[in-house]
Structures are given as structure tokens and as C-alpha cells.
Design a protein around this nucleic acid. Structure first.
Lengths: 100, 100
DNA sequence: CCTATTTTTGCCAGTATTTGACAAGTCAAT
DNA sequence: ATTGACTTGTCAAATACTGGCAAAAATAGG
């Protein structure tokens, strides 16, 4: 499981029988880049998520969540203290919410 | 709460009554940089964490956890889907652990 | 097997981001 | 006013990321 986001959009694209060639131009990139994105070798830009969500007829939030998860995972993937760090971060988020 | 790591090392440094000037050279940087790190304007390099942990006489793991938390937080801080993404990431980590 | 099409990979130059180093600044104590 | 600690801004160098192309590899159909 390299990239959850990449795997998801690939699955969606294949289910709809679309080719990279058909989608890539809508995201203003070539097929090579989109291929890399699906394989997790590149990251889609955050602001392009709504666009691809619309193309694939899925909610932007769903894709955004996976995309964010990939970003987080990139930080912690080889860290033995990943879980502890996640805990601390969650606490910080809670703290922040309470304040506003 | 800008940077948990930065706040922590500052607190430790002050508790031990050390000056930036005393510590910075041990990390091969100037006081300006270390000041920024304590204020969360720059990130300490991952491989320097054990060094500063030793200087401040605290466990490397403790500092590493805070440092990682800062990295994660930088990714999710303004994201409404932060919590969902964290959940997904944790699940992914669990899945990975099960495999090995 | 041969061909056409899709997907993947590697490379490179351009762009953007981060870093290190320095200089000048503020601030507090005396 | 001077000193020492810390902070801030700037800028060039180093680093990382991206887009685009070309060529290779995989896949599908005859």
C-alpha cells in the first residue's frame, strides 16, 4: 500500500474505464505524471483534488482525506515513535479547537 | 503553541541556565538559527535530535516524538479533515505492523 | 508474432522551497 | 551608555520538487 490516494483514484478511474490520456489533460498534466501520482511517486497538488474528484464523481472530502493521510504517512512511515507522535498531534488539535 | 519541540528545548535550556551561545556551536549552527528553532520558525534536522537530547540531558525519544508531532501538525494544521486523515493514517500504520 | 495503444520509467532543466551565514536590531540589567 | 542575550531580516547557496519529453515496458486485439 504505497499511496492510498493513488490507489483510490486508480481504482475509480478503472471502474469508469477511463484512460490516463483522457483525464490527464483535465488536470493540465501529461499521462506520465498522472501515472506517477497513481503509483504514489508524485503528489497531486492540493488544489487539484476538487477537480479530480469531480472527474471521478466522488466527494472531494473523501479524496482529500486520503491525500492528507498520505502526507502524514510520509512523515511517520519509518518512525518507531509514529504512534506517540500521532497522539501528541491529536491532542494539540483538540487543544486548538477548544481555543477558537 | 507554535512548536512543541521548540518550546520544549527552550524550557529545558532555561531550566539548566544555558545560553544559546553555549549550545549552538555543539549543533554546528549560530545562535540566530537556534533561536528560530526554539520559536518554531525553523526545523532542527532529524539527525541532530540525539545530539541536543544529550546536551539537555533528556531522552532522545521524548524530543523525537515532539519533533515528529510538529512535522505532522504542519501538514494538518489548517485542514478541516485533519482528524479523519489521522484516523486513516493510524489504520495504515496498524496494517503495516501486522504485515511484518 | 506483429501492431497499436496504454502505461511506466528515466532523465533533465526550470522552479520553488529551505537553509546557513551574516548583520543589524531589540531588550534587560547595570 | 555599555554589555550580553536573544531576535529578526536579508540574501545567496543548497536542496527538493515539478513539468515535459522520450523511450521502454506492458497490455490487448488481430
Amino acid at each position: 500500500m504505497e499511496s492510498q490516494f493513488g490507489e483510490k483514484i486508480r481504482a475509480l478511474r478503472e471502474k469508469q474505464q477511463l484512460y490516463l490520456r483522457q483525464i490527464a489533460p483535465l488536470l493540465e498534466m501529461d499521462t506520465a505524471q498522472l501515472s506517477k501520482i497513481e503509483k504514489g511517486m508524485r503528489q497531486l497538488k492540493r488544489e487539484q483534488i476538487p477537480i479530480i474528484a469531480e472527474i471521478l464523481k466522488v466527494s472531494s472530502d473523501e479524496l482529500m482525506t486520503l491525500w492528507l493521510a498520505d502526507q502524514i504517512y510520509a512523515v511517520v512511515k519509518d518512525e518507531k515513535l509514529a504512534n506517540e507522535a500521532m497522539q501528541v498531534t491529536e491532542e494539540k488539535i483538540r487543544f486548538k479547537k477548544r481555543k477558537k
